[in-house]
Nucleic acid binder design. Structure first.
Length: 418
RNA sequence: GUGGCCGUAGCUCAAUGGUAGAGCUCCAGAUUGUGAUUCUGGCUGUUGCGGGUUCGAGUCCCGUCGGCCACCCCA
């Protein structure tokens, strides 16, 4: 038996890496004044049929439950967020700064960096339409990546603004009904040959030359406010401005941004933007809030951390410092086992990470285990009783300690090299 | 969903159509109560699965499942 395609087993090392990423996410989000929330993993399929795009619905992980309800594993969090906001918004002062780490699902052929299940950090600011909120969120996104040890030459935030297109599309003679199709062509501008782009543009009556001229002018002026605020925060070095970026989702209304690794080896690390009309639509008109948000997946970020030596080292050290054993109890004489267990319990009550052999084992074996588990101290229970032999496994120093003094001695030794 | 490449021990990989192997890991030992290195021994395979061609298939062919890559899409 193997796991379903696109689903992961988290062996201890994988789980440690996941927990590390989650811990950094929570830490930085709280630093920015965001509070954590969550919703159901399973939702009525209708929530997505009504509220998400056709592409998302086509890839739903859905089934009929035993009560004949059509249900779906959540493919994204935003519909749930809209529902929760509509029901509870009066309980909270605006703007809301909420984050969540949902596990999301999609029924889609898997590839590297894109599985059928992943965790994604969602950060949203609800009820503030200022560009300050946009920048706050971009800053948060950058800091999340800096926190795991990534630097300006590891990733780039590419920023654009759909509002610019809203303002200029009429100049090209393109009506609202053609907007989505046109932006789809723009989205591929950097990826496709001019020969392929040209006929597509001509369908809209736009020449390549005219489009390029527009881009050259608009790119300079349009982003001045954002640029200024990012400069103030000394974050400009992480950012690039480019109107060609429109992002796939239909619901974005203003600033959009996406984050990539500089070598472009991986898929997008994060993406988001402003969606000022979505909550109104998703709540069936019950509430109306401007909003801006982004999502960052655990899969690509995890791969990138492993790829960048400094980030990888930082993660490994963080994991090890949390997991290494502090004390290993060596039971040299089996008749001392009850005494050992009593003292082990005391040490654990004091908050130390303590382990020992559950079954009788040779002393050499026990020391070897202590070494492999990364223990810093070994306490030996044997003929010395009621004294104990305390060994520092880093230096090799050993000393005899009366059993009642052990906690104090352990505290001294462990704190001196913390 | 479409196309291409791949699938051998827990892991990384060998094996011209002719008896399936190595390294690492893991487990057990190397005289009495101390970690490393070393040494010895041991375990794991219907070669992803199912058919076919052949005297003989890990190897060639077909199917299927799984993985990787590109397209699609990207929450």
């Amino acid at each position: 038996m193997q796991s379903l395609p696109g689903f992961r087993d988290f062996l201890p090392n994988d789980c440690a890496a996941r927990n590390y990423i989650f811990a950094r996410w929570r830490e930085v989000c709280r630093r920015y004044g965001f509070v954590e929330w969550d919703g159901p993993v399973l939702e009525p399929t209708d929530l997505y049929k009504k509220k998400s795009g056709p592409e998302i619905v086509a890839q739903l992980f859905s089934f009929t439950d035993k009560g004949e309800r059509e249900v779906a594993m959540r493919p994204e969090l935003t519909p749930t967020l809209a529902r929760v906001i509509a029901a509870h918004e009066r309980e909270f002062k605006k703007p809301l700064k909420w984050f969540s780490i949902p596990q999301c699902f999609r029924y889609e052929k898997q590839q590297r960096g894109r599985l059928r299940e992943h965790f994604q950090l969602n950060c949203d600011i609800i009820g503030d339409q200022s560009s300050g909120a946009d920048v706050e969120l971009i800053a948060l996104c950058i800091d999340l990546l800096r926190e795991v040890g990534l630097a300006a030459d590891d990733f780039v935030v590419r920023i654009s603004d759909r509002a610019a297109w809203d303002r200029f599309l009429p100049d090209f003679g393109i009506g609202p009904e053609q907007k989505a199709d046109f932006l789809n062509v723009i989205d591929k501008l950097d990826r496709e040959e001019v020969e392929k782009i040209q006929p597509k543009l001509e369908l809209f009556g736009v020449s390549v030359a005219r489009l390029m001229a527009f881009l050259a002018n608009a790119n300079l002026e349009w982003f001045a406010p954002l640029r200024e605020q990012l400069e103030t925060r000394d974050l400009l070095q992480y950012c690039e401005f480019n109107l060609r970026i429109v992002r796939g989702l239909a619901y974005y209304t203003g600033v959009v941004f996406e984050v990539f690794d500089r070598p472009r080896k991986f898929r997008a690390i994060a993406g988001g933007g402003r969606y000022d009309t979505l909550i109104h639509q998703l709540s069936d008109g019950a509430v109306d809030f401007p909003a801006v948000g982004f999502a960052m997946g655990d899969v690509v970020l995890g791969e990138l951390i492993k790829e960048v030596p400094s980030a990888r080292k930082k993660m490994e050290e963080a994991i090890q410092s949390q997991h290494d054993l502090q004390i290993y109890a060596v039971i040299a004489k089996e008749e001392r086992r009850p005494d050992a267990l009593q003292l082990i319990q005391t040490l654990r009550d004091n908050g130390y990470r303590v382990d020992y052999s559950l079954t009788p084992a040779k002393v050499g074996k026990q020391f070897q285990t202590a070494e492999q588990l990364g223990a810093r101290l070994a306490v030996l229970f044997g003929d010395e009783w009621p004294q104990l032999k305390l060994k520092d496994l880093c230096t090799g120093d050993q000393s005899l300690v009366p059993r009642e003094e052990l906690p104090a001695r352990v505290a001294t030794l462990l704190s001196s090299r913390a």
